[in-house]
Design a protein around this nucleic acid. Sequence first.
RNA 1: GGCCCGGUGGUCAAGCGGCUAAGACACCGCCCUUUCACGGCGGUAACACGGGUUCGAUUCCCGUCCGGGUCACCA
Length: 560
Amino acid sequence: MDYQALAELLFPNVTATVEEIEARYPARNLPEGAKVTRFAPSPTGFVHFGGMYQAVVDERLAHQSGGVFFLRIEDTDGQREIKGAVEALLRTLSDYGVAYDEGPRIDENGNLHEVGAYGPYKQSQRAELYHVFAKKLVAEGKAYPCFTTAEELEEIQETDKKAEIKNTDWHVAAEQKRAAMLAGRVFTMEEVRAHLAAGDPFVIRILANGDPDKKTKFTDQVKGSLEVPENDEDFVLLKSDGIPTYHFAHAVDDHLMKTTHVIRGEDWLPSLPKHIMLFNYLGFKMPKYLHTAQILKTDENGGKKKLSKRDMGAKMDDYREMGYVTEAVWEYLLTLLNSNFEEWHAQNPDKSCLDFPFNIKKMATSGCLFDFTKLNDVSKNVLSKMTADEIYTKFLDWAQQFDPAFAACLAADPDKAKAIFAIGRGGKKPRKDLTTWKDVKPYMSFFYTPYFSVDRTPLARFPEEDVTAVCTRFLESWDPADEMGAWFDKIKGIADALGYASDMKAYKADPTAFKGSVADVSMFLRVAVTGRENAPDLYTVMQILGDNETRARIQALMNV
RNA sequence: GGCCCGGUGGUCAAGCGGCUAAGACACCGCCCUUUCACGGCGGUAACACGGGUUCGAUUCCCGUCCGGGUCACCA
């Protein structure tokens, strides 16, 4: 077989040589130890949590080492492509502050353009490159055309399924399919010519020479030492539309674009033998690999499953909808990424997450369950550290989309809203009432008349005349100008006058000696003013509500 | 089913031949507190199992079991 002639026959339009291509992609001029990483999502319309996990590793590794982090769009599957997906993807990365150096960008007018000297950064635009290398492999007898159609291959599998052979059907299907593919290895130039003349579609397959019973050692940067079998599968390099498969594109692109570290999910581990063979055949130096742990969830049967796009939290966009702030998701991600992050963060509370010395060695080696409870805790802490201004701005941005009516309410009086957000904020022990933006409304809506209503049930266990008496006396003595101490002294005075203990210690020592305590008296007022039993500091609430509203609410409680 | 990866409390996890087996979240209790939210203190709870190797195994090796991944002209 004249492989050179076969290559010409198959790729008559490919004139560029491998050397010419290589010359277009010179070595990157980077300092020693600088890592070149890439995030290579397929444009399916959203960024998966697992993808973000990898993107963060990419970004950290590259930028911590003075290297380059680029973005490459893997749009080799035209059928799955969704329009606007790239834009959505870029927006998500930008929302989360994952900065990349090269790849597609959106300009002020919303148009896409590329930056970087190693492009194109969309695989669909790199066809020429792949074809040159495919031609080379064919010319060297390492790849061959296969005219067996996808339908024919599928048919073989279908018959197996219909036969309902259990247990062994995988084996049988695999063997038959393999036999069919292997049959394609044997052909003559004449047959190829005839197929080509007839316009038959074909794919380019690799000619695998591996023995799966032979294992070789491979070192993965996160998994450590691995045993991988040799590849014996004639997998497809170029699909019948001339577009490469992931495997081929991975080898060609990451070689040309000078990737030093490939970060991808561990679900890629099984195809590592293919990649090893490809890099070998092509004469490329292999990059280092980091196969990251999967993020799992508990399924209805108690088992673990990969987080699928239907699960809440799988799509990065979900978090905004659920009311999480990006910083919280970032921190949670970091806690999963590096087990010592939390410790570091506790010791360096004022440092940015970007200052954290991210370390590959600290990465999890096995899959972990996505834990909303933990995310919530992280989120609660993140929100508690923000200033009232920050909270106001960010919440408003969220609420304008998800609860415009309430947003308008707050925006009508920014100072009031900020004063509310400022309650118990700052200092060493800030309040932690908010986990997500969804908590804001239940927490503080009572400040706003349209959302205010009174739940009297806490009052039921006390005589109504006591409630009325407390309210009356409070209205008589209240002076909004009072300091908190004076204010509370007045309440204690009312408690004493009505037979309620003003001294909690005395009350606890003998509760039967009193009708109740100052805590109960406060509760009457709290119910009147906030409509409920639990609320932030009552003195501050009254200050924010103001003289008129406070009095009106207390008055209203008595009038019912 | 073949191949690959993994198995420390409910969850995330330290550990890397000798420890009363860290810590965080969750849960429970107590304290603080005019309620709540914080904060403080304490508690329940783990090395999957069986063989080796070793003076000694959570740590190393083998097997079993269990969990996960993967087996496309998808990535």
